[in-house]
Design a protein around this nucleic acid. Sequence first.
DNA 1: AATCATTTGTTCGATTTCGAACGTACGGAC
DNA 2: GTCCGTACGTTCGAAATCGAACAAATGATT
Lengths: 248, 248
Amino acid sequence: MSQSTIQQSSVRNGLLAALAPADWAHLGPHLEAVELPFDQTVHAAGGPVDAVFFIETGMVSILVTLEDGSQVESGIAGPEGLLGLTLVFGDSRSLTDARVQLEGTALRIGAAALHTAMDGSPALRALLLRYALAFLGQVTQSGACNARHPIENRLARWLLTAHDRAGVDEFAMTHEFMAMMLGVNRPGVSIAAGILNRAGLIRYVRGRMTITDRPGLEAATCECYHTVRHEYARLLGPRAAAPAASAG
Amino acid sequence: MSQSTIQQSSVRNGLLAALAPADWAHLGPHLEAVELPFDQTVHAAGGPVDAVFFIETGMVSILVTLEDGSQVESGIAGPEGLLGLTLVFGDSRSLTDARVQLEGTALRIGAAALHTAMDGSPALRALLLRYALAFLGQVTQSGACNARHPIENRLARWLLTAHDRAGVDEFAMTHEFMAMMLGVNRPGVSIAAGILNRAGLIRYVRGRMTITDRPGLEAATCECYHTVRHEYARLLGPRAAAPAASAG
DNA sequence: AATCATTTGTTCGATTTCGAACGTACGGAC
DNA sequence: GTCCGTACGTTCGAAATCGAACAAATGATT
């Protein structure tokens, strides 16, 4: 079985890496390495959640589906976090879709084993709850951001958040996709991306996004990026603020 | 001391009422009745949180403050819930303001006593975490709602949510206030309120809002109201869906 | 190599929403 | 009862955003 071979020292997920060896011992034997292929729906809105996925590499969007069929991103998870948060709360049903935006890998643990581990390790429980709080902070800030900030700032924020988790400067990303994430229409993203492009902050051709000036993007984002980042760092340590960069 | 006189049978808060007597025994002796006067800031963004407030009557908004000084509502709590959620997660700092919108009363318990009670009562811990998940659902849905739904629908939703917690059909509420809650400008609310007014769903004069046609309002809201309500009912029971109505 | 189906990015007019200024109504003080 | 300070709700032009149609580019297929 592959799960018996996983060593904590080789783990890239920030939550798992932060565990003391005694707490890791509750989880490690039950973890199973799985792929996160592009566009996979890990959990579906309204559906059951029978496992938590600690993300090792890649990026996954948490999406609300509205009555008209449109989807809006409420949060992002990467190597700093996990999928299946509802299980941490003791529930087993998802209100949202979890969809892979940048392919990667994860370590999976079933609901029963997770709950046994959380009951046996107060430190593990506390850590996962701190992550849940950080995620709530992200969702909270995003809601205000959606209400008040213009598309251009929000796009810069989204690109920075993705960049933090991607681990590379170039990745596949279409305007249509970003428009859906931000809850705006495609032309709006095209205009905003054009501005960032002409300013030299990004280079964008045919579905391939390259971050060329990260400090410039950080100047172009609204404060929401920094607010969320600081909250992650406060609750989970500086590593959570740039998960992919520190995982290498 | 007033806290020793509180009987569970007299409690109007939905979370406290749902506890089994054995679990109530962990909390009851530490609860202290407090007032929630209009406009009081119970917790301030960035500040410490040293107690949880189980709301008995009234309504409290959870607000994000943005760099430009504007505030946007991310969630609402009433007799179905509590303030100081960060303590349930094991943290003690608030990312948001909690401000009283409709005056009322609450039962307060200090952080240390709460944590002792949660450690001693798995059922209490589970209940509070389910509330936290329901609140996360509310914040999540609100974020998507902010991004995609027009002011008129969102106003109807907000009025229904307030009505659920107010326990009365008439309450004090200005356009300016509602505009801030929704993250839009005042004229937008005036136009939307005028439409609802002419349709006979509400009656609005000089800062006094009266709900005159609740079924009509439920037809005028976006789906977000029902989505959140169902999630509260699923996680916390039907009582949480109309907290003030069932508390009497 | 040329064609075609598909996806992508841009342009356009229409609608919504914004920010500031205007006129109006309330409530306390004298 | 009248004055005055304060807060309120509405109106306006300006800007941002929307939804639909258009144009361009890719890559699979023949």
